[in-house]
Nucleic acid binder design. Structure first.
Lengths: 252, 252
DNA sequence: AGATAGTTTTAATGACTGTTTAGTTACAAA
DNA sequence: TTTGTAACTAAACAGTCATTAAAACTATCT
């Protein structure tokens, strides 16, 4: 039954590592069966110890859930603050945030975030509020980058918060369908494609200046390449024209 | 406590309507407290009847959950098949699908879909599989539209399934943050903006031919209106030019 | 009024499970 | 060896809750 890592695995670990192991297997089980449907017997059995032994490490089931949430928050902000503080143009920063969100946060620990997203209502009121605050903080970071992007004229003009919700939602949802392993999408493929979609959309408008669709994801029917150069030049002219219009529009 | 609609409300309804009422309040409570943490006493109290009375309408708590899932599926496919079958270009059809997904499916019944997305692992194996099959069917519909869009040269060339995941994820996530009421975003705003973001991206590349950001969502600095007509004409010319290029590109 | 079917209630039942208690084992320091 | 502490176990406790059984109520029809 399960990955019964066995006593051998669990014992012979530093105390802090044991607690970590407990938290991890709990997260895994909560993910699979749900917090409320997972008994402490389930958890202890998976670890190869008794239910009562758990109480030497964690004071209650609820506390165990809290621990998962705390770790999730740590994971979320580990790199995010660093990225957001960088001296880079908003578009680059947003790209990094998105890539990190997918590769560094969600995919890094799927079951932890599955719990994070689905068991909020099991938290005590106080804890719940704290989590909500932190989530808002993250949204706000994304929002601010978008605001900068808009005021610098890099991003199209739209409601920043709504845009943040949209982006974050697309990335979060990955936990619902991502399955690792060969034959599946790699985290890089997913992140690269999501960035390209979010930056440039799925419609084939003008491509110049538009982010590339990662080559690994393009379909069969490919452009002939060299023969297209004329079209590209023509299109470039159009772009310049449009940019000009924008300029004129801005400066009266 | 709660919207104790009271006996008056519940009794004096056709049998089928009563069952519906039960299902709805159950969905609402499951949404708020989670399926496993919601007792049948909670449900019956909210309805103003006894727990035992519920068993005249629903044979078990699990069956109640099933009912919610069945209705969710009905809601999902109600309009979707119709839209997907229409004789319209892929970009228009996809736009309709997205709008329907947000306005006609998710926002239409938030708590139902909150349950739908979070309580899957509480379903019996057989039911679970069925739900998964149906969800795949929906994804497949979106995927197919995207495939058409790509082969008609309307969409950029990218992996259709990944694209479907991205779009669907962005839309589904709405259930996590949407709150109705004044001062919030209207379903129309959300749907329009999501479409615009998905079609054209957030980067300000060339705008011609690109979908508009819904006016209601643009920031403060607004165009002067009538004096802009010249720019609009100019831009229109550019668009025509681009369209022409596309044409040329397609027909050698 | 009496009967019938549909509806609701009261009061168990029985299983489950988080938590506690009292004790046992392992092992390192004295 | 003794002793002390941390790690663990077995067993019981106590509360919760889905489900059922049996009785009673209500309305409609005869």
């Amino acid at each position: 039954m399960g990955t019964k890592a066995g006593k051998s695995d669990f014992r012979g670990l530093d105390k802090s590592l044991r607690i970590q192991k407990i938290t991890d297997t709990a997260a895994e089980l909560f993910h699979r069966k749900g917090y409320r449907s997972t008994t402490l017997d389930d958890v202890s059995k998976e670890l190869g110890i008794t239910k009562a032994a758990l109480y030497h490490y964690v004071s209650s089931k609820e506390k165990l859930l809290s621990r998962i949430y705390i770790q999730a928050l740590e994971n979320i902000f580990r790199n995010t603050d660093k990225i957001a503080g960088k001296e880079l143009p908003p578009d680059v920063r947003l790209r990094l945030i998105i890539q990190n969100h997918i590769k560094g946060i969600i995919i890094q620990s799927i079951s932890m975030f599955s719990v994070f997203f689905t068991e909020e209502n099991q938290l005590p009121e106080k804890e719940f509020r704290k989590i909500r605050r932190e989530k808002r903080k993250y949204t706000r970071i994304v929002e601010e980058i978008i605001e900068e992007g808009i005021s610098e004229g890099l991003f199209r003009n739209a409601d920043p918060k709504l845009q943040a919700f949209a982006i974050i939602g697309m990335c979060n949802w990955v936990y619902k369908w991502y399955k690792p392993g060969p034959g599946s999408y790699t985290p890089e493929q997913i992140a690269d494609y999501f960035v390209s979609l979010l930056e440039g959309g799925y419609l084939k408008g003008d491509m110049e200046g538009m982010p590339d669709v990662p080559k690994s994801l393009e379909g069969g029917r490919e452009k002939t390449g060299s023969r297209m150069e004329n079209y590209q030049k023509l299109r470039a002219k159009c772009t310049e024209l449009s940019k000009l219009i924008e300029e004129m529009e801005k400066h009266g």
